[in-house]
């Protein structure tokens, strides 16, 4: 033993306490230390995607509930008037004869109002913007309450026009009752 200097009494007590200490072998885990070190060194993780996911999930759930509880779609009756022109009359002038008009179909369903009448009303359903006028044959088959409701909804313009005479027009139409008598006598001869 080397020559030791005698320690002061207070240091001797401290020396004794240090000598009594026993290091704990289980407090240090090298692997864990390395792991924690690596974790601490990684970049901070973004919370944007979780927030977006949560937000959109809430939106989608809300819309799904609204879709499920929405009221029945309403048919909006919308009255459309087609203006007929009203202008100041000029002095009577001789005009060229009108172009011969096309013969209208009698039975085809009309999608526009017959000329000469202002449209009283037309139903514009949200899914069927074109008024569904019926043909003469279809109108004829309706029971009266449905016929009435059809006219109330679609207006009198939706009624089929009267059929014109099937026989050709006579070349000279009688004008007076005396003319009719002569006309009938001629026809009977």
């Amino acid at each position: 033993m080397s020559q030791e200097e005698d320690l002061p009494s207070e240091l001797k007590a401290f020396e004794a306490e240090l000598a009594a200490l026993v290091p704990r072998a289980d407090r240090l885990d090298a692997g864990r230390v390395m792991y924690l070190a690596g974790k601490a060194s990684a970049a901070r993780r973004s919370r944007a995607w979780p927030a977006a996911f949560a937000g959109m999930s809430v939106v989608a759930a809300t819309l799904a509930v609204m879709l499920a509880v929405r009221p029945e779609p309403q048919t909006i009756d919308r009255i459309v008037y087609l203006p007929t022109s009203v202008t100041t009359a000029a002095p009577a002038t001789e005009d060229a004869a009108p172009v011969a008009p096309a013969v209208p179909e009698r039975e085809a369903p009309r999608r526009t109002a017959p000329p000469g009448w202002s449209i009283e009303s037309a139903v514009l359903a949200s899914v069927a913007p074109t008024p569904q006028w019926l043909t003469a044959a279809e109108v004829r088959r309706l029971p009266y309450p449905r016929f009435r409701d059809y006219v109330l909804r679609c207006g009198v313009d939706a009624l089929p026009a009267a059929p014109a005479s099937d026989s050709p027009a006579p070349s000279a139409s009688p004008r007076r009752s005396g003319d009719w008598q002569r006309f009938l006598m001629e026809k009977s001869l």
């Binding site: 009108p98 011969a100 008009p101 096309a102 013969v103 014109a164 026989s167 027009a169 006579p170």
Partner: peptide
Amino acid sequence: QNTNSDKDQQT
């Protein structure tokens, strides 16, 4: 009806 025609109606 005796004198009317589709042409007249259109006119």
